[in-house]
């Protein structure tokens, strides 16, 4: 199976601090890969480089055989990378439907002049976009939610789901989920895990997951990568990782004090 995304010797320094230290990393097409590690291990920094929020200090990010490292976020998104945020970052005072419609930004074509003239093409495009957005809301388990409700008025779980719906709206090939179950109760976590599995099955997505909840990670991942102090310290199947000495040490050693 070909790799959808490959990071080569990816590195990020802030001032003198090395947050991500020459990491090699691959995500094979159609898999669910998890990224774990103690707090401050550089997971989110790594994530932010993949999505273009940070510019790597050095190294390459190859998506579909194209070097995308250092490209701006929207350019990476346009190449089929969708993401959610660790702390939910919805457009708070836009409605649920509008949030999803913003996700469709790159698929829609309407420019400034056509928008003012509201040409038949634009009318049709908007109408179809709304139909599609409602489908996505339903698919993400928001069928019962009022689509005209402001995002900030939704329940926590619904906001998480809306973030995924919004990320799906960009029609990603690779979906990056940053601690999607943080703050969820066990029941919600279970539902969400099933939902992620469904995403891969129904929509043929490749998924990269940052997650703290080991049940989620071990339950659905094909492969797990472990970060510590900005370095990749282990990589393998969930079963292999659970037995890995360095991982246990990293979690008990620094994890105990950091927690």
């Amino acid at each position: 199976m070909a790799d959808l995304l490959r990071a080569e010797l990816l590195r990020k320094e802030f001032g003198g601090l090395v947050a991500v230290d020459d990491v090699d990393f691959t995500i094979p097409t159609g898999t669910i890969v998890s990224l774990i590690g103690p707090n401050g291990a550089g997971k989110t920094t790594f994530f932010n480089m993949l999505t273009g929020v940070y510019k790597p200090t050095s190294g390459k990010i190859i998506l579909h055989g194209e070097q995308v490292g250092g490209k701006p976020p929207h350019a990476i998104t346009q190449r089929g990378v969708g993401r959610t945020f660790q702390n939910i970052r919805l457009f708070q005072t836009m409605t649920a439907l509008e949030n999803v419609l913003v996700g469709m930004h790159t698929q829609l074509k309407g420019g400034i002049v056509q928008s003012i003239l509201k040409t038949p093409k634009i009318r049709r495009e908007e109408r179809e976009a709304r139909v599609h957005a409602r489908e996505l809301l339903r698919f993400s388990g928001l069928g019962d939610v009022d689509e005209e409700e402001y995002a900030r008025n939704l329940s926590y779980g619904d906001q998480r789901r809306l973030e995924v719906a919004r990320a799906l709206a960009i029609e990603p090939k690779l979906l990056l989920l940053d601690e999607p179950t943080a703050g969820m109760n066990p029941q919600e976590t279970l539902e969400f895990t099933a939902f992620v599995a469904k995403l891969r099955a129904d929509r043929e997505l490749t998924i990269l997951l940052i997650e703290h909840d080991m049940r989620v990670v071990m339950g659905i991942s094909d492969r797990v990568t472990v970060f510590d102090y900005g370095e990749k310290i282990a990589e393998g199947t969930p079963a292999e990782i659970q037995k890995n000495e360095r991982v246990i040490e990293a979690y008990l050693g620094s994890g105990a004090t950091a927690a």
Binding site: L9, D22, D24, T57, S58, G59, K60, K232, A234, N244
Partner: peptide, 13 residues
């Protein structure tokens, strides 16, 4: 399973 970091990094960027 453990990968050692290789040096020097490519000064691409």
């Amino acid at each position: 399973m453990v990968t050692e970091a290789r040096r020097p990094p490519l000064p691409l960027l």
